[in-house]
Design a protein around this nucleic acid. Structure first.
Lengths: 65, 65
DNA sequence: ACACTATGTCAAGTATATTTTACAAAAAGT
DNA sequence: ACTTTTTGTAAAATATACTTGACATAGTGT
């Protein structure tokens, strides 16, 4: 399942996947894969993403299936 | 840094590390390492732990350094 | 039409999360 | 004291997160 909350939070700050990848020091493909939803990042990466986007873990990575 | 919130939440339910490990289907050493704080679990594992312990990601895995 | 940026995706490699087996020691029970 | 459970820790193997390099496509701007 896609992570649309992440995609939206990034778009709200007008950042590209590359911008976000640079700020959290991972590759663009990693950001793409997380948004696409086909894998399972580490909690440290999730925390870094949250800090850059000004969100909490619950806001971006808690699933409401 | 140790994850004392996880340790406390587990203790509050009177579960051993082994009990929690069984419920989230990982090894006891993995739970131990997470509580000890010397590594970096995946978000799916964090979510599983939260669900078993009745907590959210922010409650157990958001750091207030 | 042409350049440029942003996104989606793939395959091969590297780093690291997690397992398995094992041992030691502290805590709890009898 | 003894047994049993719980926890801390370590080393070697396996699974998988993440990187690098590359190519294709859609969108935007000139």
């Amino acid at each position: 399942m896609k992570n649309l909350k992440l995609k939206a939070a990034r778009a709200a700050l007008d950042m590209s996947q590359q911008d976000l990848a640079d700020k959290v020091a991972v590759s663009r493909q990693t950001i793409n894969a997380i948004e696409k939803g086909d894998y399972n990042p580490t909690i440290n990466l999730c925390r870094s993403i949250c800090k850059v986007l000004g969100k909490t873990l619950d806001e971006l990575f808690w699933e409401e299936e």
